[in-house]
């Protein structure tokens, strides 16, 4: 083990993001940085970047550019990254099934859930599993 490695478990990272398209690239960079710690290869990292970008884009469009959302990156499993997005005041948000972004998310994610929460929030979560584990 070299001086940069640690035996500490990776802990979750949270971002609070305004619903502003200008910040989506920052989310991609963060996601890529975290996923690279899980030794994802180049293809998997690009999938993670696309996934977070698509979900952010979806939420920004649905929010009309108002408010913001919380993003939680959870690599604590060590073998997959789970990313959840919470959009508040989302009572009237409806995600069309034929949305191209939604289709991309479903194609790239190993797991994808949309959960309307009881308190008016909308929760989207995606998972990307290290492909060695899928073989």
């Amino acid at each position: 083990m070299n001086e940069f490695e640690t035996t500490e478990e990776l802990t979750a990272i949270e971002l609070s993001l305004p619903a502003n398209a200008a910040y989506v690239s920052a989310v991609r960079q963060t996601a890529s940085s975290i996923a690279s710690r899980l030794n994802f290869d180049v293809d998997e990292l690009e999938d993670v970047r696309s996934l977070v970008s698509e979900v952010c884009g979806l939420l920004i469009k649905k929010s009309g550019g108002h408010g913001g959302f919380l993003i939680k990156f959870d690599p604590s499993d060590g073998k997959k990254i789970k990313i959840s997005f919470t959009l508040s005041h989302a009572e009237k948000v409806d995600i069309e099934k034929d949305d191209m972004g939604l289709a991309m998310i479903q194609a790239l994610a190993d797991k994808f859930d949309i959960v309307p929460a009881k308190n008016g929030n909308l929760l989207l979560s995606i998972e990307k599993v290290h492909k060695e584990l899928l073989l």
């Binding site: 991609r28 696309s50 884009g57 949305d99 191209m100 972004g101």
Partner: peptide, 9 residues
């Protein structure tokens, strides 16, 4: 280096 579905559309 990167495009998303909005660009595709």
């Amino acid at each position: 280096v990167f495009i998303d579905s909005t660009v595709l559309g």
